[in-house]
Simulated assay, not measured.
Amino acid sequence: MEKCQVCKKLLKKSDRYAVKRGRVYCPSCYKILASSKCGGCGKPIFGNKLCAMEKEWHPDHFKCVVCHKMIEDDTFAIFEDQPVCNVCKNSKNPPASAKVKRCKECEQPLLAIKYYVQNGEYYCEPCYEQTGAPKCHECKRPILGKWVTSNGKTWHAEHFCCFKCNDNLMGRPFSFKHGDLMCVPCFKKFVLHRPTEPKPTTDPEVLDRTTKPEED
């Protein structure tokens, strides 16, 4: 006699049941198991459903994560994998009850805009560029997005180059000459007073503190 994997109901040979991946289910449990789950409440959906954000929802559960009102427009924003209505997206003062990240400097809500994380703090792009962004050792400008660090210095990835031949050194052996990057061929050619070859380094750390919003 078989037993349902979910409700443990004993199933007689004359009972209807379903088998999935070698496991047996009674019809009621299999209906729940096979049904799609709501992106809002996580419960099974029976009957009508709304499709958005590559998920399925109970029609009355597709709500703005900020104001909790039903989203009825064809367009909306996405914040941390949750829908945001156009009113809240453009609002400078979302409801106090909404758990919305704010910029540490200007305190604007970080809804549907690019923001950055530095030491656990959140910054909008203008404030991050002024206060939190690391500076490129080569061009001295703030680094937004991906950056490379080695020997205690930071670079834009496109500026991580040999200071002699200007070849990019990402993924290549390199060394330093008075704090400047040098590829191994240039080191051999120009540092003639050194009897030994440089100890090459091939693993600069690539970091990215950018958090981009989803497209509308």
Score class of each variant (00 low, 15 high):
154 T>F: 11
206 V>A: 14
74 D>G: 11
122 Y>W: 13
101 K>G: 02
89 K>H: 11
39 G>K: 11
55 K>N: 09
210 T>S: 15
33 L>S: 08
81 D>C: 01
131 T>W: 06
21 R>E: 14
167 D>L: 10
126 P>C: 02
39 G>V: 03
79 F>G: 04
193 H>C: 04
54 E>N: 13
43 K>Y: 01
166 N>Q: 14
150 S>I: 07
177 K>Q: 14
182 M>Q: 14
61 H>W: 03
60 D>K: 12
32 I>M: 04
5 Q>S: 14
177 K>D: 13
60 D>Q: 12
125 E>R: 11
135 K>V: 07
209 R>S: 05
5 Q>R: 13
187 F>P: 03
37 K>A: 02
205 E>N: 12
5 Q>D: 08
25 Y>G: 08
122 Y>S: 10
123 Y>F: 15
141 R>M: 08
8 K>Y: 12
194 R>D: 07
197 E>Y: 07
52 A>P: 00
65 V>G: 01
167 D>C: 04
45 I>R: 12
137 H>V: 01
76 F>S: 03
5 Q>A: 15
158 E>N: 14
164 K>M: 12
109 P>F: 05
171 G>E: 13
198 P>G: 04
151 N>Y: 11
65 V>T: 13
182 M>C: 12
186 C>V: 03
216 D>I: 01
33 L>N: 06
93 N>W: 12
175 S>Y: 05
52 A>S: 11
59 P>S: 04
82 Q>S: 07
204 P>H: 09
11 L>H: 09
205 E>I: 07
119 N>V: 06
5 Q>M: 13
96 A>D: 08
67 C>Q: 10
208 D>Q: 07
89 K>Q: 15
77 A>S: 09
84 V>R: 13
69 K>P: 01
192 L>H: 06
40 G>N: 12
69 K>V: 01
180 D>K: 15
152 G>V: 13
205 E>S: 10
9 K>Y: 06
148 V>H: 05
53 M>Q: 15
210 T>N: 09
38 C>N: 03
103 C>H: 04
